[in-house]
Design a binder for these strands. Structure first.
Lengths: 121, 121
DNA sequence: CTCATGTTCAACCGAGCGGTTGAATAGAGG
DNA sequence: CCTCTATTCAACCGCTCGGTTGAACATGAG
C-alpha cells in the first residue's frame, strides 16, 4: 500500500469518515451506533471503518458480538507535525518577504533588498 | 465538488503532491522546475498543481510564459484546527480514563469508578 | 443445537484519479 | 510572421473508491 501519511490524509478526505472521527472523539461506539445517522448501508460504514483502521486512526476490540471502535489520537500527531513544518516555513518566508518590501519602501530601492532575501534562505 | 476540507485532505493524500508542497515551502517555482525531480510527464505535474490549486493550497500568477507557483499557508490552518480539535478531545478522554483507572487502583474497586466515568461524560 | 444479533466478506457498478500521448494555446524573440 | 519555450487541454486507460446487494461468519441467549 501507500505510506502511512498518505493513508491518514486519504482517510480524512471523506466527510462521512471525518464525521465518524468527530463522534468517536466524544465516545467509543459500535458499528451499528456509528452507522445510525447516515443514509447508507451498514456494509458501507464497515468499509469506512476499515479505511480508518488501516490508517491507524481507530482500533477495534471485540465485546460479545459487538466490535467497539476507539479513536487513536497518536496518528494525529503525524499529520500535525507534517502540516506545521511546512506551514511554518511558508509563513516565515512570507514574513521575510514583508521585511524585504518594508526595506524597499524605507531605503532607496537598490540591490540591498534582494541581498537580504538571498542571505536569509 | 466536495467541501474545502475534503479537497485539502485529498490533495495532500498523494506523496508527489506533498513533496511539491514541501519544496514550495522553501521557494516559489515554475511548473518545469517542479516537474524536474519526478519521473512523470509535465502534464501529470500540471494536473497535480490543479488539484493543489483547487484545494487552495497554492496560487499561480503569470510571468512571461511561466506560471510561478506559490504556496498559500492559510489553508493549513483549516486542517490544523480540525485535527487539533478532535485530537484534544480524544486525548482528554484518554486522560479521564487514566484517572478512572488510577482511582480504581487506589480505592476499593466498587461502583465508584464507573460513577465517575459516567459523571464526566 | 438453533436462533437472533452484529459485523464482515464477495461480487459487482459507476465515478473519479493518476498516468499516458497528441494537439492546442500564450508569450518572448528573431 | 515564424519559431521556440512553457504550459494546458482532450481523449483515453487501468485502478481504486464509495456505494450497493446477498451470503457468510461470530457470539450470546433460549
Amino acid at each position: 500500500m501507500d505510506d502511512e501519511l498518505s493513508r491518514v490524509f486519504a482517510a480524512l478526505a471523506d466527510p462521512t469518515r471525518r464525521d465518524m472521527v468527530a463522534r468517536l472523539a466524544v465516545r467509543d461506539a459500535t458499528v451499528n451506533e456509528l452507522a445510525e445517522p447516515y443514509a447508507v448501508s451498514l456494509q458501507a460504514i464497515s468499509k469506512h471503518l476499515r479505511v480508518l483502521e488501516d490508517a491507524g486512526l481507530v482500533s477495534r476490540t471485540r465485546q460479545a458480538q459487538q466490535r467497539p471502535v476507539h479513536l487513536e489520537a497518536e496518528v494525529f500527531d503525524l499529520m500535525t507535525k507534517w502540516i506545521e513544518r511546512y506551514r511554518r516555513e511558508a509563513e516565515e518566508r512570507y514574513r521575510r518577504l514583508d521585511a524585504v518590501l518594508a526595506a524597499m519602501d524605507a531605503n532607496t530601492p537598490t540591490e540591498t533588498a534582494t541581498d537580504q532575501e538571498r542571505g536569509a534562505s
